[in-house]
Design a protein around this nucleic acid. Structure first.
Lengths: 111, 111
DNA sequence: TACATATGTAATAAAATTATTACACATGTA
DNA sequence: TACATGTGTAATAATTTTATTACATATGTA
């Protein structure tokens, strides 16, 4: 069983942004909490949240809300283990199971 | 030597779209000319051109203008050979050589 | 209490991507 | 000549993504 088309698409979408590549690289050293990471990659927290959400939705990182020793809430993000082999073959295979969300003009008229 | 950060980003950007995944899959069987491919993936030619350009810019496909037997111009696109191993390690490695275009507020003020 | 540091989100603006429409030009065939 | 089929692109519209600003809430320490 290979990866689902929509999942693979989500992975590509998640990685198709320089900030998010940097976030992945930054998390490689060790897990980090959001504010800490924001300082490191020099990004506002709200924006970082957005990027983290995309990475998490794609399954590339996971977030965990924890309490520090002093009792303060900290949200830690860490990398997930992921490994994709990308060739025209694996892309074509995954694409078989690719489906657009059932919106738009799916089956209005054929010719 | 591994892949350059900006090149890898361009690959992800190219693959981060359902139409383009389908185009890759369609070209897997054999090379096709633009109008032919447009019919197959049910897309207007101008739009297909845009997507093909992105794929070509990323090095995933190549285009060739040829003359058919009858003398009509035909632009054939075919898949390039590509293979990427995507893990947090390869992403982090490539990210080292990632650079934003020298615009925006690169070095306005540090703190 | 005031301040620094956390999390979290809503509203809005800005920018980039995607999509459509309307062209121009060329060749082969009826 | 008229029509079908090909390439190619410019202008514009629509949509999505990215980014900013302004909040609210909570904890620990001076």
């Amino acid at each position: 069983m290979s990866i689902n088309g929509n999942e693979l698409l989500q992975v590509f979408e998640a990685l198709a942004n320089p900030h998010r590549l940097r976030i992945v690289a930054a998390l490689r050293e060790q897990r980090k909490y959001v504010s800490e990471l924001a300082r490191e990659v020099r990004m506002s927290r709200p924006l970082l949240y957005l990027h983290l959400q995309r990475l998490e939705a794609a399954g590339l990182v996971t977030g965990n809300l924890e309490l520090s020793d002093s009792g303060k809430a900290m949200k830690f993000y860490e990398l997930a283990d992921f490994e994709f082999h990308v060739t025209s073959e694996t892309v074509a295979e995954a694409t078989k199971t690719l489906q657009e969300p059932p919106s738009s003009k799916t089956n209005e008229e054929e010719e």
